[in-house]
Amino acid sequence: MKTLRCTYPIIILACVSTQSLAAGFQLNAQSATGLGRAYAGDAIIADNASVMAKNSAAMALFDQPSLSVGAISVVSDVDITDASYTPSRGQTVDASVDDIANNAFIPNFYYVHPIADSGLTLGLAMYSNFGTSVEFPDDYVASEFGGETSLTSINIGLSAAYQVTEKLSLGAGLDIIHGEGKITRGSLLDVEVDGVDYGFNLGLAYEFNDDNRIGLSYRYSPDLEADGDVNMMGEGEASSINIPLPDMLELSGYHRVMPKLAFHYSVQYLQWSEFDSLTSDEFSSSIKDYEWADAGHVSVGTTYYPSESWELRAGYMYDHAPTDTLQSMSIPDSNRHWLSVGTTYKLSPSQSIDLGVSYILGEDTAVEESLTVVGESHINGVVESSAWLFGLQYNHSF
């Protein structure tokens, strides 16, 4: 298995790979707590500070400062099987390839600070919402369809929540998004860029009572303009690239139906139709067309509270792929099924450790793609994907 290696000076920067994490190149790796329940109810449960990654309004549920620090490790496996490649000149050959998705280590950091007697809560978050890393062998027979596709990102979130009434809280936040991208396609394309842009998020939290609450959040994601070196056959050189990112809408609920048992759920919608193509203002044609469709996921989960010291959780997610009529070997996407379990152990009334494990199984998906840059070449095959995710997190209330 290949390993995506990275070295950063502090924990806030992430090395990411999503070909088995989420449909498209979205990351579902914001916390080990959420991982253990397949992120069901994650925008409202508010069992630690990581909730602000999904819903800033839920920070109003905290009555004391809280810190969460953690990481998720990903062991992924993506293969292209039963593949055939027809070059512009020559005979059709086998193009099957194993293990094209890199593994990853994804850290995160959250801090929530209520302002006493004001109804106001402030928060700082550092995590990632987007990323992908697919790398074909250097000698891959269909280099114009393979090569390397890598996108890493970090989201620095500054958020505030205000308790409007005893039951209703509202939230808002600024997202500072730093992204880096690298794309190579043999002699056809070579891109290496990075950039910073800004988004925002809005949230709502409503408590029916202590045991029942819902949360709704919206996140605006910008079209990230990244600067660097872009070389494309037929177009020449450029100094920037535009990467459209999808807006997100999420609804979550939490219901503690018995003293020791709760059920929770989430529905997330992503406007992947925004990701129609990669472009440069300096080129007359697009760098790469994708034309994805809007998609999202549905997750359900349960939490069991056997004692004051322990919590046990489990969840299932169905994650729908955004790929539509136009397909791509460079981001070989498929619908995914998540099976998750996790636990919390309270070291003391103010400290806890979370563990989460998920197994993700992607549906086998047929992919076909053609290029007419130099003559016409064609490739088709079946994408097979799976992954194990392991999460660890430390939480502290002050």
Results as ranks from 00 to 15, higher is better:
5 R>L: 14
7 T>R: 11
10 I>L: 13
18 T>A: 15
37 R>S: 13
43 A>F: 03
45 I>G: 00
53 A>P: 10
53 A>K: 09
53 A>W: 07
54 K>V: 08
55 N>G: 04
57 A>R: 06
65 P>E: 09
66 S>C: 15
71 A>P: 05
74 V>T: 09
79 D>H: 10
87 P>D: 10
94 D>P: 04
96 S>G: 10
98 D>K: 15
100 I>R: 02
105 F>P: 01
106 I>H: 06
107 P>W: 13
114 P>G: 10
123 G>K: 13
124 L>C: 07
137 P>K: 04
140 Y>P: 00
159 S>L: 00
165 T>M: 03
168 L>E: 03
172 A>E: 05
184 T>R: 09
186 G>Q: 02
187 S>C: 06
190 D>F: 03
191 V>P: 01
194 D>S: 08
194 D>P: 01
203 G>H: 15
207 E>D: 13
227 D>K: 14
231 N>I: 15
231 N>T: 14
246 P>C: 05
256 R>G: 04
257 V>W: 01
257 V>M: 07
258 M>R: 14
258 M>Q: 03
259 P>F: 02
265 Y>R: 00
266 S>Q: 07
267 V>I: 15
278 L>P: 03
291 E>H: 06
295 A>P: 04
303 T>F: 00
304 Y>P: 02
306 P>V: 04
308 E>H: 06
314 A>L: 10
314 A>K: 07
317 M>H: 06
319 D>G: 12
333 D>I: 08
339 L>P: 08
340 S>V: 06
342 G>W: 05
346 K>Q: 13
350 S>H: 10
354 D>F: 12
363 E>H: 10
369 E>N: 10
370 S>L: 06
377 S>D: 11
379 I>F: 08
380 N>T: 06
381 G>I: 03
393 Q>I: 12
